[in-house]
Structures are given as structure tokens and as C-alpha cells.
Amino acid sequence: MTYRSRLGEGGPARPGPANAGQEVLLHRCFTESSVTSLRHAVSAAVSAAGLSVELAEDFVMALHELVTNAVRHGGGTGTLELRQQADVLTCEIVDHGGPADGLPVRLSPTDLPGGRGLWLAHQLTGSLMLTQRPDGVTASVSACVTASPAVPSPATTTDAVTGPSPSEDT
């Protein structure tokens, strides 16, 4: 079990079965004034973890939306913890607020102005999980370090200028 922090401030990982085999890459409390520096720290951490450039950009943008959401709607402060277990990065953003109307947290419809942070985080990661607690909300997203876009097989590609590739029978 590894519970060390490679980047950032804050305490060690919470020991326990939920964190078994996970390494904390970044643990930081944030406020509105630290959102930009947190984004830079997250970007460095996911890059160092080996996330591809395209996936890293989406993951960092999703986390930025969740952090901004926590500042605006979650009491103005929160905590971000980025962990890695094997080839999966998981990030939790915890705040201590919630919706003013007392209704459950939900993704906003895309036909209304504003309120798209949660929706965007889900679109960028495909893995948004929201947990509403009595004292706030935890938003979790994850990304696979080894994920890569599908690449067509050389045997089935065709060059638009020269015709079939040399590996194809003609």
C-alpha cells in the first residue's frame, strides 16, 4: 500500500480499505483564490501520471469545472484528491454546500443558460459520480492512463491519392 503525496499540500491519504493500493498524487484544499494554481497542479500531476495529452486536457477541464462548481455552489471551499491505482486516475472533489433549494444535485438541462459544469465534467470523462451527503457533495471522475484512441489497421487503410496501401492485395 502506498499513501504518499507526490505533489501538493494537505495531509496523507485516508487509510482504509477504499484506498488500498492507491497512491495519492495530489491532495489540496481550495478556495476561489486558489482555483488557477490548483488547475496547474492537477495538470502537472496527470501529465506525470502518464495520461495522454488529449485525455489530460479533458480530465483537467472536467476537474476545473467541478472545482469551480464547488466554489460557486458548495460553500466557497473544497478539497481535491487525485489518486492512482494501477492505470486508473480517480479524482474526488468534496465541498460542504449544496443546492439552495434543498433538491438533489443533478445535471442541468443543456437548453438552459449556465449550470453546465456537472454536465460538461460528465461529457469530458464519461465517469461522473455525485454523492450528496448531509454536509455537502462529493463529485468523482476517473480516467484510464492506458486508454488510447482507436487506430485503423494498416491492412485496411486506403490512401486517397495513391489508392490501396501496399499491405492490401489488389
Rank of each mutant, 00 (worst) to 15 (best):
L51A: 02
G126E: 09
G74N: 00
Y3S: 12
T77V: 15
P15F: 09
D101L: 09
V137L: 14
P166V: 10
V151N: 08
D111K: 05
L107E: 12
T158L: 13
S52K: 05
T125P: 01
T156Q: 10
T162E: 09
W119M: 08
P149R: 13
S153F: 06
C144M: 08
Q84A: 11
R116G: 14
S167F: 13
L38W: 00
A45C: 02
V94L: 12
R72L: 15
L63R: 01
G136L: 06
V161T: 14
D101R: 03
A143F: 03
D87N: 14
G16S: 11
S142V: 04
R14I: 12
T2Y: 09
L103K: 11
M61G: 01
L112F: 13
L55A: 15
C144F: 02
W119V: 10
T68L: 13
T158V: 15
Q84L: 13
E32L: 13
T79I: 13
I93Q: 00
G78E: 04
V94E: 06
L25Q: 03
T158W: 13
L51R: 01
G50S: 10
V88H: 07
P166R: 10
R106L: 09
L66K: 03
L103E: 13
S5V: 14
T77W: 02
A20N: 01
G136K: 04
C29K: 12
P154K: 06
D101G: 06
A147Q: 08
G117E: 05
L26F: 03
A45N: 03
T138Q: 06
A100N: 11
S108T: 14
S47G: 11
E81K: 06
R39P: 00
E9M: 05
G75P: 03
W119T: 15
T31M: 09
G78L: 04
D135R: 13
T158A: 11
H122R: 10
L89R: 00
R6Q: 12
L112W: 10
H27N: 14
T138D: 07
R28L: 12
L107R: 14
S165H: 12
A70H: 00
S33P: 01
D87R: 09
R83Q: 14
E81A: 11
P134E: 10
T131V: 15
D87I: 02
T146F: 05
V94Y: 03
V137R: 00
T138K: 02
T162H: 11
V53Q: 11
S153Q: 12
G97L: 04
L118P: 00
G163E: 05
L107F: 07
L51W: 01
H40E: 14
M61E: 08
L128W: 05
